[in-house]
Design a protein around this nucleic acid. Structure first.
Ligand SMILES: [Mn+2]
Ligand SMILES: [Mn+2]
Ligand SMILES: [Zn+2]
Ligand SMILES: [Zn+2]
Lengths: 151, 151
DNA sequence: AATGAAAAGATACTAGGTATCAATATTCGC
DNA sequence: GCGAATATTGATACCTAGTATCTTTTCATT
């Protein structure tokens, strides 16, 4: 009996199938769990939510999803590597160091700047990795509210 | 008998001492080896060159050097983490994916851009991590030479 | 030189991930 | 719908990078 999964999870599987990968029960389960994640997560997080799957399977599927662009890797400020559902294509993240949320930066407007800087150094630009750390709107508002309450 | 070490290595140790850390034989040896590195390196690279040091000592000293800003961490395109001698202060790297060399980008001119982008998302910027990948001048010249020779 | 603190080294342990391989599930042609 | 060919799984062992703990050694100071 095939478990019912939501539209987003369905889409992940469809994309895998289009790339020639089989639609298996473990992959269905992973797609569903990943689709339910509201923040970036680790392989270990998935494992806790999918105790019946083999550990290797989790790493393998995760890798597949990263390679096909559906999940992206997120470097936390402390060096930890997490994963999260990805918008396709090149983009960056605004990572809140307080609540751990992450916002996608879709347009990559540093490309031009890097191009210029590279040129100045005789360097042929081919790619870059950028992560941005700070505090998100929600966390800033909470602090403001607390300040007002104490005033 | 205190081994003679070069000026750069001496400087690393002096800085450690100024921060209250002792100048020990293992640290002298590490400082010297790191000063001799011409590229980014891993802890394992150091270990091969310093087989008499305990593994934990290598990791501990490396961490110390990173914390005091004398060595910086470099994220390779494949996700590998390497280390290298650092110019103090915030900076980025132009990493050649062909020869593995790395050039420091001293001025960080993306700060303004990030500030604007963050503001647009209601995000309070506090930091960022940027690595730039491509091909260095030397590698480009080599290719050109080969092309000419084959023409 | 004696002392107390810092550091080293041995060892065991952890997290995150990969290699191997026999057993199983999925797909595809019929 | 059935079976063969093949992709995938899960168990296990292994690996890299790093940390925790603890005893012994080294350093800096007096
Ligand atoms: Mn992303
Ligand atoms: Mn650097
Ligand atoms: Zn936040
Ligand atoms: Zn190069």
């Amino acid at each position: 009996m095939r478990k019912r999964i939501n539209a987003l999870a369905e889409q992940l599987l469809d994309t895998l199938e289009q790339k020639g990968y089989r639609s298996t029960e473990p992959r269905r389960a992973m797609a569903q769990v990943i689709a339910n994640q509201d923040k970036h997560f680790t392989a270990e997080d998935l494992r806790k939510q999918l105790p019946s799957l083999g550990r290797a399977t989790i790493f393998r599927s995760l890798k597949l999803l990263v390679e096909t662009g559906m999940v992206c890797r997120v470097l936390l400020e402390d060096g930890d590597l997490h994963y999260q559902l990805s918008h396709r294509g090149h983009h960056h993240h605004l990572l809140c160091v307080e609540c751990g949320s992450s916002q996608d930066l879709l347009g990559c407007d540093i490309e031009d700047l890097l191009q210029q800087t590279s040129a100045r150094h005789g360097f042929e630009l081919s790619g870059h990795w950028l992560e941005v750390y700070g505090r998100c709107n929600a966390c800033r508002n909470v602090e403001q509210t607390v300040e007002l309450a104490n005033a």
